[in-house]
């Protein structure tokens, strides 16, 4: 009987230790369970496809793909404010981890906006061009810059470096599908 109790205790210690380790590396375990290879680029792609691709860096990583790689290594899934709850839910489903609320220390989930340069104020310093992660701002040194609205992800990264504060984040223009009529919402 003492032998049995010892065996059960040892087994229990082993199993609970294993479960605890599993919970620590649950993402990684999922990853290997699903991929089975050291090369995990396919899995990172699947995570990356769920991210909103705003490349805003609010999660603390320089772009969506770096964050996807970090998630595959076990980073929290609630660091993406532009994606908000829908993204968290999809990530949780993909990784089989619990749904957690958005970590608002990285920002709030806001409707999509686009950058707009007050062009008469622009001094042509090209700092915003360098900051833009998707090359959505065109311009040349000492010349006026402008935002390509359809390319802008609304990431806010160009606002901070502007020395004259001439960049505004405006609500996304409303685009109706069939006629492709673009209307600007007015307050």
């Amino acid at each position: 009987m003492i032998g049995a109790i010892t065996a059960v205790t040892v087994l229990a210690a082993l199993v609970f230790g294993f479960a605890w380790l599993m919970s620590k590396f649950e993402h990684a375990a999922n990853l290997h369970g699903q991929q089975g290879t050291a090369e995990n680029s396919l899995f990172v792609d699947r995570i990356n496809n769920l991210l909103p691709q705003t490349q805003c860096g609010q999660c603390g990583f320089p772009g969506c793909r770096p964050y996807a790689e970090a998630i595959s290594r076990g980073e929290n899934i609630n660091r993406c404010p532009p994606g908000g709850m829908p993204t968290i839910k999809r990530l949780a489903a993909l990784l089989d981890v619990p749904v957690v609320p958005l970590d608002t220390s990285h920002g709030w989930h806001l409707p999509k906006r686009v950058a707009s340069i007050r062009e008469h104020e622009c001094i042509g310093c090209t700092k915003c061009i360098q900051a833009c992660p998707v090359d959505a701002i065109v311009g040349a040194p000492k010349r006026m810059h402008s935002v390509i609205v359809s390319d802008c992800t609304g990431c806010d990264l160009c606002v901070e470096p502007c020395p004259v504060d001439c960049i505004d984040m405006l609500p996304m223009p409303l685009i109706t599908a069939p006629g492709m009529v673009t209307l600007r919402m007015k307050k």
Binding site: N48, Q53, G63, C64, P133
Partner: peptide, 19 residues
């Protein structure tokens, strides 16, 4: 998603990184 706006932004970001 692969042919939509997200994919487009993704490709822009990749081009940016390449550049």
């Amino acid at each position: 998603n692969h042919s939509g706006q997200q994919k487009y932004w993704q490709s822009l970001f990749e081009k940016h990184q390449q550049r």
